[in-house]
Design a protein around this nucleic acid. Structure first.
Lengths: 115, 115
DNA sequence: CTGTCGTACTACGTCTGTCGTGGTAACTAT
DNA sequence: ATAGTTACCACGACAGACGTAGTACGACAG
């Protein structure tokens, strides 16, 4: 199974993470597993990448954190919720994706062109 | 006209440049103009990005440089030619693109899902 | 004959996102 | 007991992209 290099996915981690928050708040560990599942094991986000994305996006106002303390055993978990600015950012990034995809495909040679 | 951010294109500059060398050797200035033309002004590669990609890819054995000294006015120009390893790298990157595209599109919400 | 524009690079330093390493801590199954 | 899973964070390294600036030559306008 081929895997995706980080430089190739770079710039898309934000929208991947935000996608996971569109409907409900969630937290790091769960999001990382969902990304893996949804991508059918093709993309496994690194923990540090994920958590540093949280920090960055919260600083930028795209997500908000809150702590859930009502867990069994008195454990805490940091949840994230997408903000309106985050939704707008997500939407813009999706549009950018469409454009980028079109551009890149101009540079993908059709079978046979690469002799 | 929307423009493409560098993080989004990161990881694809290599294949964009190599695509330009598939048929014939070329040089920096020409390649940059061709990228602009081919992408219909949607992607304008920065000079420094281009030239540092040349250095990197030559180090990796994907391209070879040679100097054309037979230009009017005794001018010199550095040309680049793709190597067999470069062709293989290009091919592999194109495959990776296909996979990446599929993965990312799983995280692009369909109209209406983003309420 | 001076100045600007286009051609064709190169050097240097900065920034940002990703990732490797390693650590903490509590619960859960064997 | 201990290995595994859950859940997270700090620190530093790295690499690619980019901003700024500089060189140098030719063409062409005024």
């Amino acid at each position: 199974m081929a895997e995706i290099s980080s430089d190739v996915i770079r710039g898309y981690n934000d929208i991947i993470i935000l996608y996971m928050l569109l409907n409900d708040p969630s937290y790091g560990y769960e999001i990382s597993k969902e990304i893996r599942t949804l991508s059918e094991d093709k993309y496994i986000i690194k923990e540090t990448t994920l958590y540093s994305a949280f920090t960055r996006m919260e600083k930028n106002g795209f997500i908000e954190s809150f702590i859930n303390e009502d867990l069994a055993g008195g454990k805490k978990r940091t949840y994230y919720r997408i903000t309106p600015a985050g939704r707008e950012y997500y939407r813009a990034k999706c549009e950018e994706w469409t454009l980028t995809k079109e551009v890149i495909e101009k540079f993908i040679a059709k079978e046979g062109v690469v002799k």
